[in-house]
Design a protein around this nucleic acid. Structure first.
Lengths: 113, 113
DNA sequence: GCGATATGCTACATATTCTGTAGCGACCTG
DNA sequence: CAGGTCGCTACAGAATATGTAGCATATCGC
C-alpha cells in the first residue's frame, strides 16, 4: 500500500517504464532528501521526528513523501524503534560508503582552486 | 569561488556551511538529473544535445543548470568533443558502478512482492 | 559569399515540487 | 485527565522543473 492511498498523481518511479532498473533507481535517489535520508539511517534507526532534525529540519511534507517513496521501494521500513534500513536498503547503503571518503578528497580539490 | 560567474542566487551547494563535505555532495547529487547526467557520461563524452536526448529529453533549462553545477563542482568539463567527466568525476563514477548491479537485484526484489 | 545544419545556452509562461507553520488523531506515562 | 511523544497531513507562498521557442556562434558543402 502506501503510495496511492491518498496521493493522486505521484507517478511511479520515473524510468521504470524503460525496463532499465538503474534509471528508476537514479530517479528515486535523485529526489530531494532521498540520499540524505539513507545516509542518516546508515547506522541507526530514527523516528520520523529525529530524522527531520538530522535532515536540517526539512519540512515534514517532503520528508513524509520521501519516506513513503523509500518504503514503496523496499529500502526502508517503519519498525517499532523508528525508521530503519531494510536488508535491501543496507545493500544500497554499502554502495555509498565510499562516498564519504570521496567527499573529503573532492572538498579538498575544490578549495584548492 | 567557481559557482557564481553569471548566476545570481543559486546558493552554494547546500550543507557546505556545515563543514561536512558529504552533506554538500549528497545535496548536489540529490538534485534532479544530476545522478542521471553522471551516469550517461560514464563511458563517453556527449554534446549537450545528445545528453538531453539520453536524459529522456529533459528540458534544457534544468539540464544547463545541472551542467553548470557539475562544472562548478569540478566533476565534469566541457571539452572539444562535448561534456565529459573530469578525473574527479571519474572517481565518483567509479563509486557508482556497483549501483548498476544493485539496481538489477533491487528491481527483482520489488516485482517479487 | 550563401544556405543548411549543429553547437552551447537562454527566455518565458505554465506546471510541479518544496518550504514553513500549524495541527490532527493515536498512543503512552503520569 | 494533563502533558508528552509518535506518524502523518493541510495549506499558502516560495522555489524548481517543464516545454516550446529562439539566439549567437561555428562548421560544412556549394
Amino acid at each position: 500500500m502506501a503510495k496511492s492511498v491518498s496521493k493522486p498523481p505521484t507517478r511511479a518511479v520515473r524510468g521504470s517504464t524503460s525496463g532499465r532498473p538503474i534509471m528508476a533507481l537514479l530517479d528515486l535517489l535523485g529526489r530531494r532528501w532521498t540520499l540524505r535520508i539513507l545516509w542518516e539511517l546508515r547506522e541507526r534507526s530514527l523516528t520520523s521526528r529525529a530524522l527531520r532534525e538530522a535532515c536540517d529540519d526539512a519540512s515534514p511534507t517532503v520528508l513524509q513523501a520521501r519516506l513513503s517513496d523509500l518504503r514503496d521501494a523496499g529500502l526502508i521500513a517503519l519498525l517499532p524503534d523508528g525508521y530503519g534500513l531494510t536488508d535491501t536498503g543496507r545493500e544500497l547503503q554499502a554502495t555509498f560508503m565510499p562516498l564519504h571518503r570521496f567527499a573529503e578528497r573532492w572538498s579538498k580539490s575544490l578549495s584548492a582552486d
